[in-house]
């Protein structure tokens, strides 16, 4: 799986990595139980501080997407807890996207098509 880091983005690097790992798990690029690189290896590979990667992994662990242990490192969770609801933050983000699309004149059908494609 390829991670794209934009140094000049307003989104912090730890969040960029987190978002792309979540998208990778969702799309199946990262399979259940798949081993993730160690904090040190990933930090060296991207050329960033280990604390940044550590923060990402901690966040993913708290959100229930990955599990970590001293012996096996970080892995994608076999069974990710499904709450069945969209978080308030994501609802706000989705609302912003829909609003911008509407103002740009994107038809509703087009937006639904995109959701179908990404889902």
């Amino acid at each position: 799986m390829i991670i794209r880091i934009d140094e000049y983005s307003d989104v912090p690097i730890y969040m960029q990595i987190r978002n792309q790992i979540v998208m990778g798990i969702s799309s199946g690029e990262l399979k259940a139980g798949e081993q993730l690189p160690t904090v040190r290896a990933l930090a060296l590979e991207i050329g960033i501080n280990t604390m940044t990667v550590s923060k990402t992994y901690q966040m993913l662990k708290n959100e229930g997407y990955i599990m970590t242990d001293r012996k096996n490192g970080a892995r994608v969770r076999e069974n990710i807890a499904q709450s069945g609801v969209i978080s308030e933050d994501n609802k706000t983000e989705l609302r912003r996207i829909v609003s911008e699309a509407r103002l740009s004149g994107v038809p509703k059908a087009e937006l639904k098509k995109l959701i179908d494609e990404f889902y």
């Binding site: 794209r4 934009d6 990778g24 690189p37 060296l44 590979e45």
Partner: peptide, 13 residues
């Protein structure tokens, strides 16, 4: 400068 860098998570280390 675009400042975009790519990392292959599968091949890291």
């Amino acid at each position: 400068k675009s400042g975009v860098t790519f990392t292959d998570l599968t091949n890291t280390n």
